[in-house]
Structures are given as C-alpha cells and as structure tokens.
Design a protein around this nucleic acid. Structure first.
Lengths: 213, 213
DNA sequence: GACCTGGTAGTCAAATTTATCTAATGGGCT
DNA sequence: AGCCCATTAGATAAATTTGACTACCAGGTC
C-alpha cells in the first residue's frame, strides 16, 4: 500500500471540504511529491476512487472563479474518517522498508490522542525489534556468518536501519511524552496549510530538499 | 524507478540464460519479494518489456520437462549489460528515500571492480551529506525551528536516517577497502544461486524475515 | 487589440503493478 | 488404472501510477 490514500484523506479532512487542486497544493507544500507518489494523476485518481467507495463525498461545483475547468469539492464521510484513522494507526506502527508511509503518518499523528500515539509508537519499536531479531537469526545461523558473502551486507544494512529507526522512534516517544506538540483534544491543532494569501515557500524554483538523487 | 529491472537483469546475467521461473525463484531466494516489487506479474512483465527493448534476447523453448506451459529462455544482450551496469552504478549512489534500490544494488555490487565500487560508495556518502544539508537549511530558517510544529519531526526523521545511512555506508567502504568480498576480476565470484538439487531454505512456511508489518 | 506568460484545475493514454487464475506434468496412493 | 495434489510456468484482468497534455482565465505589454 502506498501512502497516497492517507495523504489525500488527511488533506481533505484538514480543510473540511477541498477540491483536488487544493489537495495537490497541500501535498506539494508538505514536499510529498518527493517522498511519496503524490503526483497529480495519483491524487485525482485517489479522490475519484475513494468517492466511489464512499470514503469521500463529491460536490460538483460551478466553474472556478480563477480559471480552469469546473472543480469538484470533496468532503470526508464518516466511513472515510474511519479509514483515515485505520491507515494512520497502521502506518505509525508498520515497519516495512518503505519509509514513506511513516513520513505520511508523522504528518498526521497529532490527530490521535497523545496517549494513543505513544502506545502506537511503542508498538512500532517492538515491531522493529522483532523484525531485527528475525533477520539476525536468519543470517547468523549455526554455520556462522560469512557464508552469505557480500549478500550478508544486505542483512547488515537492514539491521543497521532497524536500529537507527528504533532509536529515532524512542527519541520521538520521549519528546511526545515530555509534552511536545498539540494532540487531539488538547486545544488548537497545528495546521500545516497555507493561510489565504500566504506565500508558498515551496513554489517552483525553491532550493528544495530532495535533489540529491 | 523501481528495482525490478536491475534485479531481473542481474538474475538473468548470473545464469547466462534463464527462463522466467528461474528468475522468479532466484528473486524469492533473495527475499526480494519482501523488500521490492518482485512479484511474478512484475517479473514476467519486465522480461517481456526488456526483450522488446533489446536488453534481453528471448528464445522460445519446447514445453518444459517439468510441467507447465512452454518456457521462454532469456539471455542478456550487450545493450542489456550496459543497462545493467548503468542501473547498478546509479542505485549504488542514489539516496532517494526508497531503500529498496540500494538493497538490490548491494546484491550486485561485486560485479564492478573494487575501486569503482569504492568510488561509487564515496559518491553516495557525498550525496547523502548534500541532501542532509539541504534539509537542515530548509527547516532551520532564520526564524528558528519550531515553526513547523510536529511537521518538523518529518525533517528530523530524515536527518536521522541520512546520518545513519551515511555512517553505514562509511562502514561498508572500510570493509571493502580492507579487502572484504570478491569483486570483478578478482577470481571466482560469489554466486547466490541455488545449486542444482540444493534445497531452498526460503520455501513456503520458512520463518522468514519481514513479518513485522 | 493581439499576443504572450503564468497560474488554475483537471483529463487522458500508456506503462506498470497487483492479485488471481490457468494449464501441464509427475509422483504417490489405493 | 484412476485419482489427488504439489510443483512448474506463465497468462490475464483489474487497479494503480506515471508523464504529458488540455482548456480556461487574468494581466501585462508592445
């Protein structure tokens, strides 16, 4: 599963009601096109698909005042909210070598109560450790390591990544436990959306991250 | 770009001549279905596609002796070898948040001369550091950090991953420089392919890594 | 007043990926 | 001999993803 559904649901939800271009802009603002597959085609496709599945409600609108074809506004349904929370919880705990789902989930973690977020992050650490154990067990068999030749470097890399991921997650847990950020039910949420008229620092030509390919 | 082309080219190349099912088995042996999109459909598709593009040469064969439909054997062409090396070099240096391409490249790095592999890995470290600099510069602007709220954790995570990745790469460079593994032109290569009749430890039901999702 | 540029909003065809299905063979069992 | 079933090899349909494209309007400008 890619991160696109979570991203789109989360973006629509933050606005209450949003059209595709708005979602597209939000995701660009978050840099999502660089660490996930949030490209126009995928976004519009996800919107339509989820509307068909009842996760979003589509409202046909009059032609926009700003040029371009008529827009369609979307609203998240109750079912969509459920799916959103399910994905969010899953991605916060999933350790599956595709870091983009974690990145997406981090952006939305504050939609959960602080205690739940903490529990999920701890679950995440547990999963990583479990996974690490299964890898080391596998590539450190009775005959000793080394029999895998350079292939062993792959496992080595995984173990290293797992350790690094677990360590980082523990740091995040500490920060959250110490009171960082504003979680669900704790007052005004922090919203990473451009205010009306605010300039998008991520417009074309910015010195954006993600160039080192 | 996904890792599938490198994986398939590399597998065919190791055999000299291979049919789809063989490639599929090799990739399963490497666990590639867990950290990349190496599933049957993708593999057969990639084979056909690359045959059409002249990277592979297809030989229609008689019905197999072991059941199933007639098989098609593939051989890598000169053009395919070029593409293989190009991809391998690119993936060894690319730092792009999709670790699966690095994993795939690690499995084949010994197809390059040791000196070249070292140079590419050093290039990789440089790219990571460059990327890290662009991220920190971006999220530590004049106004100081914190203005991003919990969104800052995304960048924090990236920086942490980048540091961890660079550190690991430096370790690999040291090991390779110290003489580990057998690289191109240094004698019998290590081949991670099942010998005829050897049992596949990765058959169904194995306690395989990658369960902690 | 014709032309060019840039932003807005979205569509579309082609390529890829996923998940599931088909078809053939050989071996064991009764 | 007939049946079951695991393995082998690949095909197919549906979903997703990509990259390029369209069409519309506003504002400047020559």
């Amino acid at each position: 599963m890619s991160a696109i559904r979570l991203l789109v649901l989360g973006a629509v939800r933050q606005h209450g009601r949003a059209h595709g271009y708005q979602v597209r802009n939000d995701l660009e603002y978050w840099g999502a096109h660089e660490w996930s597959n949030a490209k126009p085609g995928s976004i519009y496709h996800a919107l339509k698909q989820m509307a068909k599945q009842g996760l979003l409600l589509a409202h046909e609108m009059a032609p926009s005042t700003a040029g371009g074809p008529p827009r369609v506004e979307y609203e998240i349904t109750e079912q969509g909210t459920e799916e959103y929370l399910t994905l969010l919880r899953a991605y916060l705990t999933a350790y599956d070598q595709r870091p983009d789902v974690l990145t997406a989930a981090l952006g939305f973690m504050v939609d959960l109560p602080r205690e739940e977020a903490l529990a999920l992050l701890e679950e995440r650490v547990r999963k990583i450790e479990e996974w690490r154990a299964s890898v080391t067990e596998y590539y450190m068999p009775a005959e000793g390591p080394g029999q895998y030749g350079h292939i062993g470097e792959i496992m080595n890399h995984w173990v290293h990544s797992a350790d690094s991921g677990a360590e980082w997650t523990r740091g995040l847990i500490e920060r959250v436990r110490a009171g960082a950020y504003t979680f669900a039910g704790e007052g005004d949420p922090f919203v990473a959306v451009l205010a009306e008229g605010e300039e998008n620092p991520f417009a074309q030509g910015r010195p954006h991250y993600g160039e080192a390919r």
